[in-house]
Amino acid sequence: MMRKIWLNRWFSVAYHYVNLIRDNEDGEAFEFYGTHPNIDHVSLSACDVKETEPQVKGEEYIQFCLDFCRRHGIDLLIPRLHMELIARNIDRFAEVGTRVMVCSDLELLENMMNKEKFYRSLEGRGVVEIPAYRVVRTAEEFAQAYRELTEAGERVCFKPTESEGGMGFRILKQEAGDPLKELYGWVSLETTYEETFRILSSVERFDDLMVMELLEGDEYSIDCLADAAGNLLAAVPRRKSEGRVYDLEYSEELLALSRRIAENCRIPYAFNVQVKYNKGVPKLLEINPRMSGGLYITCLSGVNFPYLAVKAAFGEPCEVPEPEFGIKASYVEQAVRLDRIRSETEISGI
């Protein structure tokens, strides 16, 4: 029996996830459904059926999801958008016969989506080192946080407490550069304290910003696989090197860190731990309770993370091969045709 999997409003890398699941080592057959507000989004090109997703929120979005699952007989939903909202309504999906590949521990999921809450939940537990940080909401609090961190000998950066990837991340450079030279140069993540303070001072309060020590060593994404109970099955550290180059490295320190996180947090299925070294110590950046953007690179280790996560979500045992380490990898753009899959309109014959 061919099972149906739906991915809602994913990033473009979902193209790789779908193909990794489809080309699984067991020969299991799946039919893939994809939705996105942009019907030409490249993530949909790997799916068998695509549909335009409405840009709605809250209960209206849940109703859309439930209706989609009923209409298509979806067996498994792999959400990216509105994970918390969907997790809070997971019983309603079960009622229509749809499993959801999401962390159902609502407190844990909420914490992981907010860096301040997650850092506080892990502080003092001996799980992972947390960078020095302050959460600020006014220009005066920002100035105080900057002063305290610089006086402690740290370079400083900041990021919104709720954001994905590098959105809102800035490094505070210690000296102003030549504005004209910078205008003709590459766009930079660096800005000055003075300019940031000026902008923040233009409002009475702003959304939470985390001001923290700048971690200046190697950065690692550790892709992790766990069963439905959060028992760790595999972990592969992926080091960001120069440009587009990544190294899949064996590191007992980072593998032990992954085991501690898994034992303490019990995150199911596929998740990603991001750490960066500073002064020889790996410190936590964030944990993403979903498949990471670079997971398809990590799968060069011989572990098919997306497919095995799907098996875990269906409650099936997973035979996980020993990952291969010592791999240097990169990626290239690939041309993809967007006119070879069926839309909902074509299926219905309208």
Rank of each mutant, 00 (worst) to 15 (best):
T298N: 04
I341M: 13
R88A: 02
F271A: 11
L257W: 12
E28L: 13
L81Y: 07
E263K: 15
L232K: 14
V49E: 00
F158W: 09
L189T: 12
C69K: 02
E123L: 12
K311V: 07
L122Q: 10
A262V: 04
V281E: 05
E194S: 08
V245I: 14
I222C: 12
R120F: 03
N24L: 04
Q334I: 02
V281C: 10
S258K: 05
K181C: 04
V127D: 00
A139L: 09
A235I: 05
R70T: 13
V273S: 09
D178N: 11
S43R: 00
G165S: 03
L338Q: 08
L180I: 11
R155G: 06
Y246P: 02
E123G: 00
G243W: 09
T345R: 04
G34W: 00
V332E: 15
L215T: 01
V136F: 08
I39A: 12
A312D: 11
G168C: 05
N19Q: 15
C157I: 15
L257T: 10
K279F: 04
G126D: 13
L254V: 00
Q334M: 09
S188D: 13
T345N: 06
R99H: 00
Y146I: 07
D48T: 01
I267M: 05
N38I: 02
S301D: 13
K328I: 15
K50R: 15
D48W: 01
V128I: 14
K117T: 04
E162L: 14
L233S: 08
G280S: 12
I222N: 13
C103N: 14
Q63S: 12
P323E: 10
G124K: 10
D247E: 12
E216M: 11
M112R: 03
R9T: 01
Y220G: 01
V136I: 06
V336P: 06
G243H: 08
Y307A: 06
L295V: 01
I171S: 07
T35I: 08
V336I: 15
C103H: 10
N24Y: 09
K276M: 12
Y15H: 09
M112P: 05
V136Y: 03
V49R: 00
L285G: 07
R244H: 13
N278A: 08
R170M: 07
E129K: 05
R137K: 14
G27A: 11
E333T: 03
L20A: 08
I62Q: 12
G166M: 10
L20S: 04
K50V: 05
L248E: 07
F68G: 01
V42W: 04
S201Q: 02
C265N: 12
